[in-house]
């Protein structure tokens, strides 16, 4: 049927596979996302640190360059687990900024324009719709976190040799898992907020609030009660513990403080109180709980029609 015929005709050609249909959503969403100059600029800025890290790795192994720049190799950062831990942390901070820019309109725009029935009346389930929206964030955030992380790792391995690679092979899993845990939690959180709030600005504010308010509140708890358990309600502190655990750098005791304890045993004595980070399993549990709540919220809100009680 030619365009000029203006007739209604059925489609008899081949269909693309059902399992990959949800990938249509991120393809269109990414096209829209990159139309924003602000986003594109920040996205490019996200690659500055990986570039710096790659230069550091290169300098580590280039004697001529070190001699030319008159830098002592020992003064350079060691390329070890802490180097890659810092890399993951820095890039994860950028990932949060990108999420705040990209995520808020992903579902809220469809909700405010009643577009969900249009998606869900097609051979696309609610889970696939959410997966499609999530794929937008997973793709973008992967590009700035674990993908450059692994590239730098293999760059270092190529320069340092096979012995270094075998000794540090476990770090591949740490870089990938550490980044993916953050990406998945961030994506679910952002989509849940987007499904709850129809206005983009409010959704962005809510996302920032969820990040900073519990962190501040947790810090107040820590200071008031001479503890570190307040970190459990801070997304960033919880993730830092998880990342440290994955890179084998988790230290539970992070400080000591002299405080007055009023118990029948100590009777208002001054004692040294160890400041213990919450156990690693508690951080993992917190992340699992956050993800579960987000999935529950998405299951309730992503419906073709709003159910009014």
């Amino acid at each position: 049927m030619a365009v000029y015929e203006h007739l209604y005709g059925a489609y008899e050609g081949e269909s693309h596979s059902a399992w990959s249909r949800f990938l249509v959503i991120p393809r269109y969403a990414l096209r829209e996302t990159f139309k924003s100059k602000l986003f594109t600029t920040i996205f490019i800025l996200c690659f500055i640190y990986p570039l710096v890290a790659a230069i550091l790795v290169y300098l580590h192994h280039n004697v001529n360059a070190l001699a030319l720049l008159q830098i002592n190799v020992r003064e350079l950062l060691p390329i070890d687990a802490s180097f890659f831990l810092t890399f993951v942390q820095v890039q994860s901070a950028f990932a949060f900024i990108l999420t705040v820019l990209v995520a808020p309109p992903l579902i809220s725009r469809d909700l405010s324009n009643n577009a969900l029935p249009l998606y869900l009346c097609r051979p696309l389930s609610r889970a696939e719709y959410v997966l499609g929206k999530m794929a937008v964030l997973v793709f973008l955030l992967s590009l700035i976190t674990w993908i450059p992380g692994l590239l730098i790792f293999f760059f270092q391995a190529s320069l340092a040799g096979l012995a270094w690679l075998w000794a540090n092979l476990w770090m591949i899993q740490a870089i990938f898992s550490g980044s993916m845990v953050w990406i998945i939690m961030l994506s679910l959180l952002a989509l849940a907020v987007s499904s709850l709030v129809k206005w983009r600005v409010v959704a962005s504010g809510a996302l920032l609030g969820l990040f900073f308010v519990p962190t501040a509140f947790g810090q107040i708890i820590n200071e008031l009660f001479l503890t570190r358990n307040g970190h459990l309600i801070s997304l960033w502190a919880t993730m830092k513990n998880v990342w440290s655990g994955l890179f084998g750098l988790f230290v539970r005791k992070t400080g000591e403080i002299r405080g007055r304890v009023t118990t029948p045993i100590y009777d208002n004595e001054l004692v040294d109180i160890a400041l213990l980070e919450p156990p690693l399993w508690a951080s993992w549990l917190t992340i699992a709980l956050i993800c579960a709540v987000c999935v529950w919220l998405l299951a309730r809100k992503v419906r073709a029609y709003e159910v009014i009680k």
Binding site: R109, D110, S112, N113, N114, A115, P117, L118, C121, R122, P123, L124
Partner: peptide, 15 residues
């Protein structure tokens, strides 16, 4: 759903 085309009652579009 693959065999159905649906035109909803309310304004529905992608902004």
């Amino acid at each position: 759903r693959a065999t159905i085309g649906y035109m909803p009652e309310r304004d529905s579009f992608i902004a």
